[in-house]
Amino acid sequence: MNYGVVQFPGSNCDHDALFASALSEGSQSQLLWHKDTSIPKGIDCIIIPGGFSYGDYLRCGAIARFSPIMREVVTFANRGGLVMGICNGFQILTEAGLLPGVLLKNTSLNFVCKDVYLSVVNSATPFTSTLSQQSVIRIPIAHGEGNYYATEETIKELESNNRVVFRYSDSEGRITESSNPNGSINNIAGIINARGNVLGMMPHPERYSDAVLGCKDGHAIFESLELFTSSNSAATVDMATH
């Protein structure tokens, strides 16, 4: 499994993502510079990490979207490549049009940095297949603009097509107002595109990817990606040899 982690000026979770994505045996991860105009051959998944790309000037993610690497990321995603945007990465993917909606200022107006519980509401994605449906994972958040908003029409489309992947919940998996840290519509913490290969989420799975960090609930997302990629390449090999 080969990961590429995009590095923008102002990214600050790039090395965490690099570390977390290379933890499994057989996984490698490399940094991709924002000025790169191509994606190295063999990359299976691109991670757009958290941070404050381009200082979050104008709107978070708005400037990063126009950097040369993003053109390649969009092409990669349109060809079916796996893309995961975490926190600022999620904001960039919405600005780039790979995911619908937008992330508004938290309703509290505070930057919120704490552990939250997420209910896994779609475990049938390449990002969540090793998690069970409705299971609860503990993942940290750290953002000032994580309040997911989209038009009523878009929300309806996301909900009816099972494109909400994670919701903020309590430790028992109940989706409550008090477990919503930022005011997101329907407690939405992560969504996927229609094709199922682009995920955006505000919480940081890379920060809880190893027991030494206090929790490794986030590792399941990387394991899911690895499982998906290995079974897919096995299928390709299968087709090639028969």
Binding site: L58, R59, A62, F66, E95, G101, V102, L104, Y149, A150, T151
Partner: peptide, 8 residues
């Protein structure tokens, strides 16, 4: 294209 985001 850039200066505003019509969604919000």
């Amino acid at each position: 294209k850039l200066i505003a985001n019509p969604i919000m």
